[in-house]
Design a protein around this nucleic acid. Structure first.
Lengths: 102, 102
DNA sequence: CAAACTAGTTAGTTATACAAACCATAAAGG
DNA sequence: CCTTTATGGTTTGTATAACTAACTAGTTTG
């Protein structure tokens, strides 16, 4: 394999996807967020948000806690350590790409 | 629609895709490049490269000129003005995102 | 003249994002 | 009450996307 253009090739696709990148950006600053808050912030449909969260959870990037607010179900999401690390790495890599190709 | 998280939502997907982002980065600095050069730089398979180029051409981001080197066919690729503009916009937007969420 | 290389395209598979429809419960209105 | 409306999601289906493998076509080399 060639130079792979400044590590662009092994960018984390899971985070690269704009919807998930937005989610990571939000979760990186809030400790934890509920489903509807995330939906409003990202503008995603419920289904879409649900599937993105499932992917992030599968990757171990987020932890999903299903609880109740009163008797109304409530889904709380937070970034795991792995998720935080992945997000940081992604940002660093991309920043480097932008600089190197500036 | 909500805040859309610093314009991340309307990022140019055509350029956002890492393979095409790499292509744009290369083409933004070389005036013109041939197929095999691009293949080696990006590490893409021929088929994959071909389809990415087709998409970029369809969008008017690149111009493809099919010519000959001696009697061997040669495909030359260069960024159009629209492509250059789109690449620049993409970079600016992403940079902004990185800064704002820094 | 056969093998192997150059330069690509086409065809087919797999994965992805996305929206629409659905399900379940709870509160509110008549 | 019991129907509507809202909350909080999941499941399902579909169109697009990326990617690989196989094929085409001509060319050089042994």
């Amino acid at each position: 394999m060639p130079s792979d253009l400044h590590g662009l090739a092994d960018i984390d696709r899971l985070i690269h996807e704009p919807a998930r990148l937005a989610l990571a950006a939000i979760l990186s600053v809030v400790e934890s967020a509920d489903f509807l808050y995330l939906q409003r912030e990202t503008g995603l449909t419920k289904g879409n948000l649900s599937s993105h969260l499932a992917k992030l959870e599968e990757a171990g990037y987020i932890a999903i806690e299903k609880t109740y607010r009163g008797r109304v179900p409530l889904t709380l999401v937070r970034l795991t350590d792995a998720g935080t690390a992945a997000y940081r790495t992604y940002r660093a890599r991309f920043k480097k790409f932008l600089e190197k190709t500036g």
